[in-house]
Amino acid sequence: MSTSPPDQRAARADDPLDRLPLRERKKLKTRRAIQHHALRLFERQGYDGTTVEQIAAAAEISPSTFFRYFPTKEDVVVSDEYDPVMAADLRRQPPELHPVEAIRRVLRDLLPEMLDGGDGDTVLTRMRLTATVPSVRSRTFEAMRSGTQAMLRDVIAERAGRAPDDLEADALAWAVVGVLMSAMYAWLDGRVGMEDMPELIDHNLAFLAAGCPI
């Protein structure tokens, strides 16, 4: 399955990444171009059969420029820019909301934008590579820890008036990440379709907020 050209995705009026600051959007344009060419090559000739040099040549950049945007080849699959968008949207939620309910509200808007607004093919390709390439799968787990989980921990602690290293905020952030990973594996195992992911994630977050009554 092909990915949408980065210039078309960047121009979408409903692109949630347009909510990023201008400087970040400029860097995003280059990152998306590199990722677009990388995913196209991975689909055509396989992940292991594609080199950083080939990706750089396709994107008309040098290998050193590639590594300025992506520390490893795995990162070109794993990395996205939605964590800052999610963090900003979480900070705009009413302070009286429980953190999990605030996350539900944000993801109800953000996930359909990601999957239906033009990035769905890219998300699907990245998830397939995560499922089939061990080094990408390993890097995905590390990125979740240092990226999404850390972002959620910091915002949850901030909203609760706690220290950034608060252990309960950390535990709740890991629980939310577990919900996201559970949905991803349900798709990878063929138990749900990609179109079911937003509803499944929302259901599982509600289950978490209710204290997991099972």
Rank of each mutant, 00 (worst) to 15 (best):
Q149K: 10
F141H: 11
D18V: 01
A209V: 07
R108C: 06
M181P: 03
M127N: 11
Q93D: 13
G46N: 03
T122E: 15
L208A: 07
A13F: 13
V106E: 06
G193E: 08
P21R: 04
E195Y: 09
P134H: 05
A143H: 13
A163E: 13
V106T: 08
N204S: 08
P84I: 02
L152H: 11
R145L: 06
I103H: 11
A173E: 06
M86A: 15
K26C: 11
L107H: 08
P213I: 09
E158H: 13
L167A: 06
D89C: 00
A173T: 05
A169R: 02
A209H: 01
E195D: 15
A209Y: 01
T3K: 02
D170Q: 06
A11D: 10
R126E: 03
M151K: 11
D119I: 06
L205F: 12
G178A: 01
T130G: 06
A33E: 15
M181C: 00
T125A: 15
Y185E: 01
H36P: 01
L90V: 00
R32K: 03
L111M: 02
A10R: 10
R19Y: 01
D15G: 12
D166L: 10
R19Q: 14
D189I: 06
A186N: 12
E113F: 00
R40A: 11
A131D: 14
H203Y: 03
D189K: 05
N204A: 12
G118Y: 00
E195M: 10
L124M: 10
Y185S: 13
R104W: 12
M1L: 10
R25N: 12
L20I: 14
G120R: 07
L41D: 04
A58E: 15
H203Q: 13
L167E: 05
H36E: 11
E142M: 14
T125Q: 09
Y47F: 12
P5I: 00
E101I: 02
M144F: 14
E158A: 14
L172M: 13
P16S: 01
S138F: 09
R25S: 03
A186K: 10
P63F: 06
F207S: 05
L111N: 03
F42Q: 04
D189C: 02
T122M: 06
V176P: 12
G147R: 15
C212M: 05
F207H: 08
I61A: 12
S138D: 12
I156C: 07
D75I: 09
E96V: 13
M181I: 06
A171Q: 05
